[in-house]
């Protein structure tokens, strides 16, 4: 078989100019490689068509339509009415929902950053680093249903947190039932769950600071606090910035923890934009308002993403 197919090719090649045949062979090889490449990419491109482009178009269409949700033929275009409805007087979308979203994201960033900076700078000098890292990582691999339910129970009058407060002689707090404490209480849990990965990034950042800087500072007689403010913190800035922005982006989008813990309550005290989108769609069947809310939140997320890209590109040019 091989000989049979090779033989005519060999004689053909011998008969023609060698370089011309080489070019032709390469062209055929290249064409075959293109076919193979698109075969390898086919599942991915098909997926993008059905689960990326189609849904994006559909969501955009829905955000500008009114639809009861059954027959696709009943989709009724209403222009920008859904968006106008979100920002109309008396709408809860701007306040408290969108403000809650920003507070939730900001609060998580501040708490997680403070915690991870403290732990990461200390952990660097200790033994058993692997053990500490494992422990701090546990929440990251745990399902949100477990995290949410355990903390919900811990916040209850008969739960651990109030148990500690009572032991200290303080009164119980109805953390998740009081509109004033519900959002901070959920923020604490989200921060608790994300400290581990922030520690990881910051630890890597710390390791990249040259040892000689610290030695020079020690020779100059700088104290621990001075070293931290003058050397560690400035040189850690890229890692800090990265943690801030990615954590902020995650915070803007997260709502699984809130569904498990409070479902947005009491009232709208812990309701965030992504949860509002979810409820409008799957609880009230208002697909138009839900899709409009999704695109408003997407605009915010996109803006933050672009700021991130711009910041890191600028940093890249400086370096």
């Amino acid at each position: 078989m091989v000989n049979a197919t090779l033989a005519p090719e060999a004689t053909e090649r011998a008969a023609r100019d060698r370089s011309a045949a080489g070019v032709r062979g390469r062209a055929r090889h290249r064409r075959r490689q293109a076919v193979v490449a698109y075969l390898f990419l086919a599942p991915t491109l098909l997926f993008y068509a059905v689960f990326l482009l189609l849904p994006l178009g559909f969501a955009l269409l829905l955000s500008m339509s009114r639809w009861a949700g059954f027959d696709l033929g009943d989709i009724e275009p209403v222009g920008l009415d859904n968006f106008a409805g979100l920002f109309a007087d008396g709408s809860t979308f701007l306040a408290p929902i969108l403000t809650n979203t920003l507070l939730f994201a900001l609060g998580t960033v501040v708490l997680a950053l403070a915690g991870s900076v403290l732990v990461a700078t200390c952990i660097d000098k200790l033994r058993f680093q692997g053990l500490w890292r494992t422990l701090y990582f546990l929440p990251i691999v745990t399902t949100v249903v477990a995290v949410g339910n355990v903390w919900k129970y811990m916040y209850e009058p008969g739960g651990l947190v109030n148990g500690v407060l009572n032991t200290l002689g303080l009164g119980s707090v109805a953390f998740l039932q009081d509109p004033d404490t519900a959002l901070p209480a959920v923020v604490v849990v989200q921060a608790w769950a994300s400290v581990g990965s922030a520690i990881l990034v910051l630890t890597a950042g710390l390791k990249s600071i040259p040892e000689s800087y610290y030695e020079a500072a020690a020779l100059d007689g700088a104290g621990a606090v001075t070293v931290f403010w003058r050397i560690t913190l400035p040189l850690l800035r890229p890692s800090l910035l990265f943690v801030c922005i990615t954590q902020f982006l995650t915070g803007l989008q997260s709502f699984a923890l809130i569904i498990v813990m409070t479902r947005g309550g009491p009232g709208d005290a812990t309701n965030v934009a992504a949860l509002e989108m979810y409820r409008q769609a799957f609880s009230y069947g208002d697909w138009g308002a839900a899709s409009a809310a999704a695109f408003v939140l997407f605009t915010v997320v996109l803006a933050v993403t672009l700021v991130q890209l711009w910041l890191f590109r600028r940093k890249g040019e400086d370096a």
């Binding site: 990326l52 994006l56 559909f58």
Partner: peptide
Amino acid sequence: MFPPFLFFIPHFLI
């Protein structure tokens, strides 16, 4: 660049 929450509704309907 597209966050996951953008797709819950259209994916479900699709």
